[in-house]
């Protein structure tokens, strides 16, 4: 398909009235066109955390808050009990979850790939966006993407200091990290949903039916 490549680029350049050797500096042109001005963004008066939880709830997410990483398992257990979701759980292989203690009757498996037969998965978000109530997951061994998509119920954990205001702040934060961008960076705003039958909103289309967040800190 090399011919197609050359031909498409040739047609594009002809349409733009340029030849292959013309010197173009799109980055300067971009600054002049718009990028030197700040983009209009949604703003809010309340505190960052309040904005986040308000948007997160608006997207049908539920949440609780604990003071330290050691309390994650307790919060997860309480949630599962309260919702009658059984005592089985799949965890991501994340250092924050390694040392957690679980009640004896709980069957907790640390997995690299979610078992579609098991219904509850727990993983750690790498960031969160107050603007939209969105959690950000970085696919990889510490947060297998299947946990966030194959589970019936997804429990997410977010250390509060990783909460930022806008989506742009996530890029600024993560661009500096080794390995950015990962294969998949998932921005998740509430559980899976569809309105394809008569415009009626129904949760749990293909991904999780419920998304529960444990805020740490």
């Amino acid at each position: 398909m090399n011919h197609a490549r050359e031909e498409i680029l040739r047609r594009v350049r002809r349409a733009l009235k340029r030849d292959a050797d013309s010197v173009v500096d799109p980055d300067t042109a971009r600054d002049t066109a718009y990028a030197s001005e700040r983009a209009p963004r949604p703003t809010w008066d309340e505190k960052r955390l309040q904005r986040f939880t308000e948007r997160f709830e608006a997207a049908a997410g539920t949440w609780c808050r604990v003071s330290g990483p050691g309390d994650i398992s307790g919060a997860a257990v309480d949630f599962l009990h309260g919702a009658g979701l059984g005592q089985k759980l799949q965890l991501a292989a994340h250092p924050m979850l390694d040392t957690l203690r679980w009640p004896d009757q709980f069957k907790v498996a640390c997995v690299q790939r979610a078992d579609p037969g098991l219904s509850v998965g727990l993983s750690i978000a790498e960031a969160a966006i107050a603007e939209t109530g969105t959690l950000v997951f970085w696919s990889g061994p510490r947060a297998p993407a299947t946990l966030a998509f194959l589970s019936e119920v997804h429990i997410a954990v977010l250390p509060l200091e990783w909460l930022v205001d806008h989506m742009e702040d996530v890029w600024t934060l993560l661009r500096k990290r080794d390995g950015f961008p990962p294969r998949a960076l998932n921005l998740v705003t509430g559980p899976s949903r569809t309105a394809d039958v008569e415009q009626t909103m129904q949760l749990g289309a293909h991904g999780p039916r419920r998304l529960h967040l444990i805020l740490v800190g």
Partner: peptide, 12 residues
């Protein structure tokens, strides 16, 4: 919606 439920950046 301010943002759809799933927005994903796929790279490689």
């Amino acid at each position: 919606q301010d943002l759809s439920a799933y927005t994903t950046l796929v790279t490689g």
